[in-house]
């Protein structure tokens, strides 16, 4: 059964047609990467699933129920860490746990910080963290509510290449523990291939899904392996095939 569904969802912002008739379903425990250039509607798609935007037409469903706003089972990680600068790392992680008592909250916060390797930084203010550490705190903040789904909007794109691969591996480690469903927006094909079970390619505007490809690689995946490179080559040729089919203008998709 599908956990997340978009059913012919469209989104307009005034005159701008961001997303046109997109249908997608994501199974429980699956990792899906949404790949596309800017303007392809991939962030809008994610925001529909997050309940941060409502579709202009069509439906966004979670467990077959309409997503009419953010919900506790769906965690979101943004491109920027978006930590509240006046709260310590621990208070940022525990931000959404105000309904719990102090002891339980602290226990969960400590566990989440442990999982991202930042237990020593509980009392630190965000301004003292590096970009990678700050993003790990935001991952901890999203994980602390034990969501079924984690939506990630280009979570590592602002980080340097070393930190980025570190955090990709780290995200997979975390995923292995309780296997939440991950939907990840990225414009980095390597990132999509390292993480995802399935790559969904979008182009636009208006954003449409024009191809989908399962990633047939065993885990753990080696970025330098021949199989990985072959998979990347095939993904690229899917992109090129879509281009030569003239479904969309060639410059729509940026291929790194």
């Amino acid at each position: 059964m599908s956990l997340l569904t978009l059913d012919r969802a469209s989104k307009r912002f005034g005159n701008r047609h961001a997303l046109a008739d997109v249908s997608l379903s994501v199974a429980s425990g699956e990792i899906v990467a949404l790949v596309g250039a800017s303007g392809s509607g991939k962030s809008t798609l994610l925001r529909l699933l997050a309940g941060l935007e409502a579709p202009t037409s069509g439906r966004a469903l979670f467990h077959d129920a309409e997503i009419d706003g953010p919900r506790p089972e769906i965690g979101v990680i943004f491109q920027e860490p978006r930590l509240l600068p006046w709260l310590s790392v621990a208070d940022n992680v525990g931000f959404g746990l105000a309904h719990l008592n102090a002891v339980e909250r602290e226990r969960r916060v400590n566990r989440a910080l442990d999982r991202v390797g930042l237990a020593a930084y509980a009392k630190t203010l965000p301004r003292e963290l590096s970009g990678g550490m700050a993003q790990r705190v935001s991952i901890a903040r999203a994980l602390v509510g034990q969501p079924e789904v984690l939506l990630l909007d280009e979570p590592f794109s602002a980080l340097d290449a070393f930190t980025r691969t570190d955090l990709q591996d780290h995200l997979l480690d975390l995923w292995r523990e309780d296997r939440p469903t991950l939907v990840l927006v990225t414009h980095d094909l390597d990132e999509a291939l390292v993480l995802a079970d399935r790559v969904v390619l979008l182009a636009g505007p208006p954003g449409r899904i024009f191809a989908e490809r399962p990633v047939a690689l065993a885990r753990p995946r080696e970025r330098t392996s021949a199989a990985f490179q072959e998979e990347k080559r095939q993904l690229l040729s899917t992109l090129h095939a879509a281009r030569s089919g003239r479904i969309y203008e060639p410059e729509v998709l940026e291929v790194p």
Partner: peptide, 21 residues
């Protein structure tokens, strides 16, 4: 706006949005 969105993700009420963010 991005910090306000964090509050929305955690479903803060209007009062809590003012008080906490």
């Amino acid at each position: 706006r991005k910090l306000v969105e964090v509050g929305r993700v955690w479903r803060l009420s209007a009062f809590d949005m003012i008080r906490r963010i």
